[in-house]
Design a protein around this nucleic acid. Sequence first.
DNA 1: ACAAAAGTGTTACGCATACACCCATGC
DNA 2: GCATGGGTGTATGCGTAACACTTTTGT
Lengths: 249, 249
Amino acid sequence: MTAPRPGARRPDGYDPHAFEPFAVTVDLAVFTVREERLQVLLVQRGQEPYQGAWALPGGFVLPRESAGQAARRELAEETGLSDTTVAHLHLEQLRTYSDPDRDPRMRVVSVAYTALVPDLPEPRGGGDAAHAQWLPHGTYGPLAFDHDAILADAHERVGAKLEYTCLATAFCPPEFTLGELRQVYETVWGVELDRPNFRRKVLTTPGFVQAVEGPPRLTGGRGKPAALYRAGEATALHPPLLRPEGRQK
Amino acid sequence: MTAPRPGARRPDGYDPHAFEPFAVTVDLAVFTVREERLQVLLVQRGQEPYQGAWALPGGFVLPRESAGQAARRELAEETGLSDTTVAHLHLEQLRTYSDPDRDPRMRVVSVAYTALVPDLPEPRGGGDAAHAQWLPHGTYGPLAFDHDAILADAHERVGAKLEYTCLATAFCPPEFTLGELRQVYETVWGVELDRPNFRRKVLTTPGFVQAVEGPPRLTGGRGKPAALYRAGEATALHPPLLRPEGRQK
DNA sequence: ACAAAAGTGTTACGCATACACCCATGC
DNA sequence: GCATGGGTGTATGCGTAACACTTTTGT
């Protein structure tokens, strides 16, 4: 077991018979905050295995593209958004899932990505029934393949990243209120935050958000009109904004 | 661009001609703290491309193993340690590197792993010159392939994880002093920490370390003998131990 | 005696928490 | 008026930073 097997170690060169072909795919865990709930983009499988079950959108990595390029291409296809719109969305590699039996048909190694999108009109433009749609997180049965595990990892990652990055703005439209931003945290973390303290934390963090000058206020329903902000330049958050009673695992 | 291409989307089934064979490998970024320096396990390439350059150890994922199993197998091979010893080392998936041109010979998708090991006797037991050896971080020329980028990502990840996990104990032998543990932080972060404050932080965090009862003290050279500790049960660190002036990127 | 490292104690400050309170709008 | 959400102010407490001091070894 410990002895090197000739042909399987890279530094000694490639033996074309030392490996079987692997399929490499990407899977997407796409989140949005919509109607005060965390929603996930899913597709319904049309054939075996797992026919009828919900699954994460995804597809093959093409011969001349990186996994990241494949993920963004698939994201554009599944959401029906323009390439330029998708180019600005937050897309981040999660991790790679490589269990030999994760797909019963063949050996598939999948690089999972997490995407955060604002509350878009609707997933797709066409009427294609096989396309992806939003489902509130946790309201679907078991997902196909190992997608439940992928989605759980993605949710945990997103929740953790809200603590020490400015990532929450990725869930918001270009201009947003602090109430909307706070809604993101509360929805992803499943907790309530103190409004005054949240406001201070965000406004005193340099580069988290920047005030929109022109119209100093706008309404989202009833209540006092709120000031509008844009995402700032900063990406990190020091010190972090820890979730209350934060035990993450 | 936005239209679905038949055969490339997974939910519509597998087209055996929709993809070319990808080779899937693992690369290992193995760190240790040794002689008050951060050291990296590297191998010297024996042939083109990048002949003579240092590279991360790694190898192919075999048809019936996961990437994680492949990483642990390679770690055992490169370090020459027994499988049971390697089974207890901290090994963690970093991310996957999939640029189509990252290897000039063929399409190789590599799942990178980060391993943290204590100050081991010497990397290997045999006399094989082609085996891996420790080099102080930053003292080698440019690495082969995209391994400089992988190693930089790994270093950043390890530094960040020390902030909010109990991972530092993975660099230490089974029993260690608080001075040794502090040395880990100082070496990885490249800063000096206040000894009394570090001590308090570690001891007041439940489950970070646990005191070794029997012999209450032991020496590591000159100075007052220090108490010994073992790694505790906890994995997370709340609140985190932030590095001074912590700008991580 | 001196240096070096472990261990204890103390103070000050920053930040987060937990409130109380006022403002502006829709109904 | 009342409910709802935005915005401001303030007291309290925890945790870290900074630093002084004692203890115990090797040389």
